[in-house]
Design a protein around this nucleic acid. Structure first.
Lengths: 213, 213
DNA sequence: CCGCATCCTCATGGATACTG
DNA sequence: CAGTATCCATGAGGATGCGG
């Protein structure tokens, strides 16, 4: 990218990550380190030459690093510690975007893994006096796991294990609930809950302040 | 801009503000509402047709609004309430960028007004038990004012009035101090302080956690 | 002057085919 | 699978024009 040529933190940050696709690549790596092919699949619409270019740029800038998967010679892309620091501004953009998400997917593609980033940005408000629980969010067949502890809420892909409850709904409903734009009782017919419903209500209670359109 | 076509908050946010120059325009309007010509001057490198295009885009998206200056028919651009919500992700990017700023302005252009955004992003950590004070930061002939209150720190352009102290240094030093990368005693020869030095040290004490390169 | 609109050139992005 | 190479469409950047 052409540099803005401005001695300003925002301008220099954008010199590094302002190029098209760059922050979406970082989003994918915030979910988990990934192979080239996984990135291609998780970034529908990207051209393969662009992905290769951007990964090189981000590596040279110190945002991304190539690792070798254990034993094999397979390359795995991951964020450096500094690159992982982009989580904060990215979460800020996700919170800011909630008015853009309420109209639903329209024709846009969707990948349930993106919810790992979005729910983490939207859910963990002040850790009110909550009890610990583990609930699953099932969207589009995939399950995201939320683990509530007194310190905050962990959001991960679910890879099996015990769940106190499972909430099943489509993406727009889940995001609306997490952002506080929807109340569980308002969309009762569109949501299925199995297990400890009180734990689900509890986890949806605290959140960051949401912007208004 | 071409939409990413992804039902993801980050992607939709970037559909709105991811285009080149957009976030820098928002930066200028976070400093203060501005006329077209002021934006042109505060955004060195932008082409005038691009600025006009982007302002139209941002207005259609609901980020920016045109106002009429009192009495006159002069157009003033300002952020909507939603647009002002971009302050959080922008401040996150500014904090993330500190490793990029320590090498100083190379040949980059600089405008002291940009410090209003940067210092606000870097300085207000937890409001430790500090006393209230008003200090000026003079960089490049311009003065920024920091008003410390128990609730936090205000950062504004200085338009006259009482100051408890004035710190004079160049931009890289000021940013290094605000980010915590520099200690006042380490750069004593490069900084001039007039007035209540203890108030200056006090205001530089609390800040956000800074990322490492 | 201010607030844009037009025109032109060139760098970048996007889609697809190809290679180690 | 993990990228390169190629070709074409789009958009940025700069100069300039023009009405209020």
């Amino acid at each position: 990218m052409r540099s803005y040529g401005q001695y300003c933190g925002l301008a220099r940050a954008l010199d590094v990550v302002g190029d098209r696709w760059n922050l979406l690549i970082v989003r994918q790596l915030l979910i988990a380190p990934a192979r080239y092919r996984e990135l291609l699949d998780g970034l529908p619409g990207v051209a393969t030459n662009l992905l290769a270019d951007r990964l090189r740029d981000l590596e040279n800038a110190g945002v991304v690093e190539r690792r070798l998967a254990e034993g094999t010679n397979a390359v795995v892309y991951a964020l450096t510690e500094w690159g992982a620091g982009l989580r904060e501004p990215i979460e800020g953009l996700v919170r800011w975007s909630t008015p853009l998400m309420t109209r639903g997917p329209d024709g846009d593609r969707f990948d349930a893994a993106w919810l790992v980033v979005a729910l983490r940005a939207l859910l963990p408000g002040e850790p009110a006096g909550r009890r610990s629980s583990t609930i699953g969010i099932e969207v589009d067949g995939s399950v995201i796991r939320l683990r509530t502890t007194p310190g905050g809420t962990q959001v991960e892909k679910h890879d099996g294990g015990e769940l106190d409850a499972v909430l099943r709904a489509d993406a727009a409903i889940v995001l609306g609930l997490a952002a506080g734009a929807l109340k569980l009782d308002d969309v009762a017919g569109l949501v299925a809950i199995e297990g400890d419903e009180a734990a689900v209500r509890d986890i949806l209670r605290t959140r960051h302040p949401a912007p208004r359109a």
